[in-house]
């Protein structure tokens, strides 16, 4: 049997030297359930994420994958079970929620940059108002991360003047400015043209190379194979299968996974 080789989406070798999974638990989800009204959207989710893991979550639309990662920073509320992020349990307690949110970065499908602020202001706003970092220091940090995502020259423009790919890279830089220990990506490339997908994936891979703990909801299977240490497949609000990417793509176990992969890989 020939091994499936997917295009990682970038033209360079990936440096895996700093991608290390440690024993330290970053996120612990136990018996978590969520309903939208009477619709049972997440069913008995159990999941442990260790620090340094790069997890890709995939599945058909409506499978609850976005809802799952949105529960991790409480953009969605879960009704049963337990979510512990960096030792802080997510409950109705606003203090805990704010604490988790300031430690967990999130990148959205539609970027959600603040259109009335410049790129630089987008990046410095949360550090200044949440972390109480002095303005100059926040600006230095912001420029550092904007250089990292390769758009320092756009710092004084407004989001409306940037292309989709550039906006998404700003959104990543904005999250990084809060120095998060965990990054969540909710379909970060789904709203982008193919040319722009590449530049965003490049940024995400660079982040993985630095050892960031990442959870990505994405359909970029090339990215999953190249970067992830674990792929989770969800359907109907439950985790159907999870495995390391090589096994996941070459030797899927459940029929549902096989069907999904055959559709998405276009064979």
């Amino acid at each position: 049997m020939t091994e499936i080789q997917l295009d990682p989406g970038i033209d360079r070798e990936i440096d895996t030297s700093a991608m290390k999974v440690t024993d330290e638990v970053a996120i612990q989800i136990t018996a978590m359930n969520k309903w939208y009204g009477s619709f049972h959207v997440l069913r008995d989710i159990n999941m442990t994420v260790n620090r340094g893991e790069r997890i890709v979550i995939c599945g058909p639309s409506g499978s609850g994958k976005s809802t799952l990662i949105r529960c991790i920073n409480r953009l969605e509320e879960h009704q049963a079970g337990q979510i512990i992020v960096d030792g802080t349990e997510l409950t109705g307690d606003l203090k805990n929620i704010d604490k988790v949110r300031s430690e967990v970065g999130m990148v959205f499908q539609h970027f959600n940059l603040f259109p009335h602020l410049t790129i630089l202001e987008n990046c410095t706003l949360a550090p200044i108002w949440v972390r109480k970092v002095p303005k100059r220091e926040a600006e230095e940090t912001a420029m550092h991360f904007l250089e990292k995502v390769k758009i320092p020259e756009q710092a004084l423009k407004y989001p409306g003047q940037l292309s989709g790919g550039q906006q998404q890279r700003v959104a990543i830089a904005r999250s990084l400015c809060m120095k998060p220990r965990i990054m969540l990506f909710d379909e970060p490339t789904s709203a982008l043209d193919p040319e722009m997908i590449k530049e965003v994936l490049d940024t995400m891979i660079a982040l993985a190379e630095e050892g960031m703990t990442m959870l990505c909801v994405t359909h970029e299977m090339g990215f999953a194979q190249a970067v992830a240490n674990r792929v989770i497949f969800m359907d109907q609000g439950q985790i159907v299968e999870q495995n390391e990417p090589r096994e996941f793509f070459n030797n899927p176990q459940s029929d549902r996974t096989k069907l999904f992969l055959s559709q998405i890989l276009g064979h």
Partner: peptide, 18 residues
């Protein structure tokens, strides 16, 4: 205003008034 603006503000840890 798109819902995403509220979510982005929440996700960055800004409280309600901020």
């Amino acid at each position: 205003l798109p819902k995403g603006q509220y979510e982005a503000a929440d996700a960055l840890g800004l409280n309600y008034w901020k």
